[in-house]
């Protein structure tokens, strides 16, 4: 069947901050024990202060029907932070992860990436991580931080984050 022609994407622009963020947006799970923070950086390594990061993840038992969602605008230093729980594996052989969307001024179509967890034995067999070239896989794995996990998103450059064509 020929498709209905899709509506093209456009950048979120610089001035979404009075519109899209909402109280509780960065709280994926109220009272969650996991803090996931990071920064969005451009190809020069400079912070992107006008990005919007969205996450979607399974609950602790790996169920996706609850559609746990979070939305966090980046601060002037490009920083974002979510309060959530560590997701369970969504299926046999899949490692725990969060799906991430990045919107930004200068990004005409948003980007998809994923956050995986360091030291997770299931990472070795995860079918999505397996598609990623060895040298770049590390960009998808969060780092342990004092207050939880840190995940920086590099839009471009030597350590460019792996983005997915979903």
């Amino acid at each position: 069947m020929p498709g209905q022609a899709l509506t093209p994407a456009q950048t979120v622009g610089p001035f979404y901050g009075f519109a899209l963020p909402y109280p509780g947006g960065p709280v994926v799970v109220e009272g969650g024990e996991l803090r996931l923070s990071g920064a969005v950086l451009d190809g020069a390594g400079d912070p992107v202060p006008d990005a919007l990061v969205e996450v979607l993840q399974a609950d602790v038992r790996g169920r996706l029907d609850s559609g746990l969602f979070g939305r966090c605008p980046t601060a002037p230093e490009g920083r974002f932070a979510f309060t959530t729980v560590r997701p369970g594996p969504t299926a046999d052989g899949c490692a725990p992860h969060l799906a991430v969307i990045v919107h930004a001024r200068g990004l005409l179509l948003h980007l998809h990436t994923r956050v995986y967890f360091p030291g997770e034995p299931l990472n070795a067999a995860d079918p999505v991580l397996a598609k990623v070239p060895d040298a770049r896989r590390g960009t998808l794995i969060a780092a342990e931080a004092e207050d939880g996990y840190r995940f920086d998103i590099r839009l471009q450059g030597p350590d460019e984050t792996v983005f997915f064509d979903v």
Partner: peptide, 28 residues
């Protein structure tokens, strides 16, 4: 503004990824 904000590496294709096909529940 696209100059420093677009990835230069090829995107990795993900066909039918379960997580990205889930429906987000907006808490707004």
């Amino acid at each position: 503004s696209t100059a420093l904000r677009h990835p230069k590496q090829p995107l990795v294709p993900l066909h039918d990824p379960e997580t990205e096909l889930a429906r987000p529940f907006l808490g707004a």
